[in-house]
């Protein structure tokens, strides 16, 4: 039986982990490769790097991180952040990423998703959708895509956009609720459910995890195939193992190999 995936996400800036990872004694808590190894050993099902490097000159730092991670971690690795061209996708895949996540570039030009999927296969193209609820209390639920860390509205309906990018060849959707991100209040399960029901590819729920029950809700109520979280793991609030055990207690299939 296919297992529900638990995915830690590391924000990487200029080749360093933002805020560091504090759940184990690492020689260098800011080294993404050490953090990746720790998560690999802890039984994470996949790992996601989000590159938030701002300056163009330092864009190459993520490639070195990916290369060194792929040498040591034999688990699936997704890399996103600033992916704008087919060449960006190719470079990351060749460095050792298994999947590449496309965000703003897909919003700006949807055809890019199709070009990347055609070139490298749908299985490695993830579209990251950052959505905010725009419907008012009592209205029918509606979510819009926001860019620039949730600051810039685009007027694009999130559910419709998800359908379009999947039709173009996205193999997976990484769905972040910008209302919930960083709040610890749990996923926006109505949003997750709406997208999961709209597309035939797996949806990763993201944004807002504060407790282990939130992970269960993302799968059960949201219909997600995988759950992504950052701070609850990095700060050692919960281990990957604890997360999986809670999912298992809730009757969801998980992998406890490690």
């Amino acid at each position: 039986m296919l297992k529900v995936r638990v995915i830690p996400c590391l924000d990487v800036k200029d080749g360093r982990v933002v805020k560091g990872v504090q759940f184990v004694d690492l020689r260098d808590a800011g080294d993404p490769v050490e953090a990746a190894r720790a998560y690999d050993l802890a039984g994470a099902d996949e790992l996601t790097f989000l590159d938030i490097t701002a300056s163009h000159e330092n864009r190459g730092t993520i490639l070195d991180v990916v290369r060194r991670t792929a040498e040591q971690c034999f688990m699936p690795l997704t890399v996103g952040g600033g992916v704008r061209t087919v060449d960006d996708v190719r470079t990351l895949l060749h460095a050792g990423a298994d999947k590449v996540s496309i965000n703003t570039a897909a919003v700006n030009r949807r055809a890019f998703v199709g070009e990347a999927a055609e070139k490298f296969g749908e299985q490695c193209i993830v579209v990251a959708i950052d959505a905010k609820r725009v419907s008012k209390e009592g209205e029918e639920n509606r979510w819009e895509i926001f860019t620039h860390g949730g600051r810039t509205p685009t007027g694009i309906d999130a559910i419709q956009f998800a359908r379009e990018v999947v039709d173009l060849g996205a193999g997976e959707i990484l769905l972040t609720s910008m209302d919930r991100d960083g709040t610890g209040q749990g996923f926006d399960c109505a949003l997750t459910r709406a997208v999961a029901d709209a597309v035939h590819v797996p949806v990763i729920a993201s944004g807002g995890v504060g407790t282990l029950d939130h992970l269960v809700d993302g799968i059960r109520e949201g219909g997600a195939s995988a759950v992504l979280a950052a701070s609850i793991f990095h700060f050692g609030t919960f281990t990957i193992r604890e997360a999986k055990e809670r999912l298992a207690e809730a009757g969801l299939p998980v992998r406890l190999d490690v």
Partner: peptide, 10 residues
Amino acid sequence: LKIPHMGWNT
């Protein structure tokens, strides 16, 4: 069930 079949299986 979603397609692709993506993830860990026995």
